[in-house]
Amino acid sequence: MNIEERLLKGDKRACARLITMLESNDMEAVEILKRLYKNTGNAYVIGVTGPPGAGKSTLTDKLVKELRKKDKKVGIIAIDPTSPFSGGAILGDRIRMNDLSLDKNVFIRSMGTRGSLGGMSRATWGAVKVLDIFGCDYIFIETVGVGQSEVDIVKTADTVLMVMVPNLGDDIQAIKAGIMEIADVFAINKSDLDGADKTKLEVEMNLDLNENTDYRPPVVKVSAAKNKDIDVLLEKIIEHRRHLEETNKLEERRIRNNKMELLKMVEEDLMSLILDKAVKEDLLERLARDVTLRKTDPYTAKDEILKLVVNE
């Protein structure tokens, strides 16, 4: 049996190997996804984001266990930062999900961000398709909500779950500024600690400023460590899904997400095409020199580079 047939049969090794191939930009894997794309579309994607240490992995573990009670097949993609110095990473999200390892209907994959030029979003979107074909009903993408490409990734989920914790202090400001708008459901985790009510209030007050009226993101206090109110949180996520489906917004959202994915891929491919050529032909070096020596101006030089890929 080839890898394609094995994936369709739900073989974990095939699933794992395809994700590796996509991560290394292997064209054979892309060809497989072209053929199997028609088999995607069943999975519902939940993006889990929030500051480091908020309990995203622990909470994901508990939500998945809740979904397993409903006999859903689940995939998890857990993204952790790659060290910009060495290019290596320690991916530790599995520590919180160890009891899921042996479940036949759960697949967990850790990924490093591999630097902004590493094509993380493309690899993640590819992995989501693989897990969809593998037969997952739900796919979780866990990522710290910092950095543009990580925000881009979590944005393309069907439901974005923002995990907050009490006593974030000034951090809440930073989160407010960047990423609060993209959340569909808020979880105030670690509600076993003091201050959860205050955090909930702060989030609610922020939401009051929002003009979007047809859907107000719910704010749920939970404790992942104590396994408290996880069912309530899952219900809110499913309610959001229902809202999207009933108002026809799910398709709208997926069109928006696919637009983003397409643009991102075109952007990356164009960029590497241009860089490849410009660097190989020493064009970049020569033009930069000419601009510095005032032999030409940067705008003309830029057009010169663009001519490498554009005809008119």
């Binding site: 110095f85 060495s86 990473a89 991916l91 520590i95």
Partner: peptide, 13 residues
């Protein structure tokens, strides 16, 4: 050490 050598380490605890 493996991370610092550029490897992706999955640590399971």
């Amino acid at each position: 050490a493996l991370r610092d050598a550029g490897m992706e380490v999955i640590y399971t605890g």
